[in-house]
Design a binder for these strands. Structure first.
Length: 293
DNA sequence: AAAACAGCCTGCGTGC
DNA sequence: TGCACGCAGGCTGTTT
């Protein structure tokens, strides 16, 4: 999925488009994604004004004036498309988008567009997710963080409260590779495969090292590396890999700066040794065996 | 309790 | 051109 920087970028795009507008129509085009859509989703959203947006880990929350928030997770392949009513999707024209452009008004949704929100300012915002690993739910705004999907999340990595002492405490006693520990959303929330690889490279820590041995001095290097790689990526508009496009249709640029991710065989930017790819808990890990210990 | 694994889905790139 | 295969940014539930 989009990881934290991508979700942050999408959320900012959605906020720019939707904040302050009233939802005039919601179209739910299938019964479920990863989970069933919430009961009466359409009725509970229609007529509501959009107040604000918030991100927690890789989740987006859209606050509605009636006291509920739409909780959105993009899964692996989810993206949001925004377009003026009647126009083709702004983000990544697909075959359906090109056809609808020619037809003009009442453009049909593009392929795999499972939920469409229309507003009184004439925008149509769609949730597109071919693999359907994404999810949508409604949660009481005042109790957002008690939702079952949010309750177990660890600290936000960009918060000041995420310190090396906090990370160390979460790693102590864990006999699993640091790579796997950082992918655990209960340790720190929002990192995925890409940014774990990149952060470990910046910190000079081997992804194979046991998590417990990172507590202490190595955590003091790792925490700033995590914060820096996430902040830089957000500044670049996130990464645009295979499936992912920003809400405004612009491509993120951060993937151009990856030091290790997807660069098997290429020279390490630090020492020029070839980047290696290994598989850990079924996921690709990219790292430099010389620069990362 | 923590860790490993299968499963959920579709699409794309690669090699034959 | 077609086809089989491997791979993909995540998370959950079950088993070990």
């Amino acid at each position: 999925m989009p990881e934290l920087p991508e979700v942050e970028t999408v959320m900012r795009g959605l906020a720019a488009v939707l904040e302050g507008q009233r939802i005039t129509e919601v179209e739910q085009r299938r019964p479920d994604l990863r989970f069933p859509f919430p009961e009466n989703l359409v009725r509970r959203m229609e007529g509501q004004r959009v107040l604000s947006f918030r991100r927690r880990a890789k989740y987006m929350l859209m606050r509605l004036e009636g006291g509920e928030s739409l909780l959105i997770h993009l899964g692996m392949s989810g993206r949001m498309v925004a377009r003026p009513a009647g126009a083709a999707p702004v983000a990544r024209l697909g075959p359906m988008g090109a056809a609808s452009d020619a037809r003009g008004h009442n453009a049909p949704p593009e392929a795999h567009e499972h939920l469409v929100i229309a507003t009184d300012h004439g925008w149509r915002v769609g949730f597109v997710d071919p693999r359907r690993f994404g999810s949508v739910d409604l949660v009481t705004t005042a109790a957002e963080d008690t939702h079952r999907l949010l309750a177990g999340l660890g600290p936000e990595p960009l918060d000041d409260a995420f310190t090396d002492a906090v990370l160390s405490a979460a790693l102590v006693g864990r006999h699993t590779p640091i790579k796997a520990a950082l992918l655990d959303q209960g340790v720190v929330a929002g990192l995925g495969n890409i940014y774990v690889c990149e952060a470990l490279f910046r910190a000079g820590i081997s992804p194979r090292r046991l998590a417990a041995s990172v507590a202490g001095v190595r955590a003091a290097r790792l925490v700033p590396a995590i914060k820096a790689v996430l902040a830089e990526s957000i500044g670049a508009g996130g990464s645009s890999l295979r499936d992912y496009v920003r809400a405004d249709g612009e491509l993120g640029r951060f993937q151009d700066t990856f030091a290790v991710y997807g660069r098997e065989g290429a020279p390490c930017p630090h020492c020029a040794a070839p980047i290696q790819r290994i598989v850990q808990s079924g996921r690709s890990t990219f790292f430099c065996a010389r620069a990362q210990r």
